[in-house]
């Protein structure tokens, strides 16, 4: 069980690093926090689990999403008309 969680954590962390959409990365970070909270609970550290779930999956996700909302999409590979079309689309 612990090993499954650890492998999932590594996969999600790599996805957070390589994904091109910041919002997807933030949601993956939130999932990492949730998995870590479950892991802490399995390892008999419920205090840390509560902190991780509340801070990592709750408050920091809200703050990250609000920070991303203040940005706009830009990528050198995007064509200009595509960039204008997707401007502010998903955030």
């Amino acid at each position: 069980m612990v090993i499954v969680f650890l492998v999932l954590l590594i996969i999600l962390s790599a996805y957070t690093l390589v994904t091109r959409d910041l919002l997807y990365g933030v949601i993956a970070l939130s999932a990492i926090s949730l998995l870590s909270a479950l892991l802490f609970y399995l390892l008999h550290a419920p205090d840390v689990a509560i902190t991780e779930a509340a801070v990592g999956a709750g408050v920091s996700t809200v703050i990250f999403v609000w920070a991303i909302r203040a940005t706009e999409r830009f990528s050198p590979q995007d064509r200009p008309e595509k960039r204008n079309g997707s401007k502010g689309g998903k955030q």
Binding site: D47, A49, I50, T51, A54, V55, G58, V59
Partner: peptide, 25 residues
């Protein structure tokens, strides 16, 4: 609850405070 029962069950001031902040949001 998490804040005030921190001496008996898992939790405490910091954890309860963050949950209270989530409630405020």
């Amino acid at each position: 609850y998490v804040m005030l029962f921190g001496h008996l069950s898992p939790g405490g001031g910091f954890q309860g405070g963050v949950v209270v902040a989530s409630g405020i949001v």
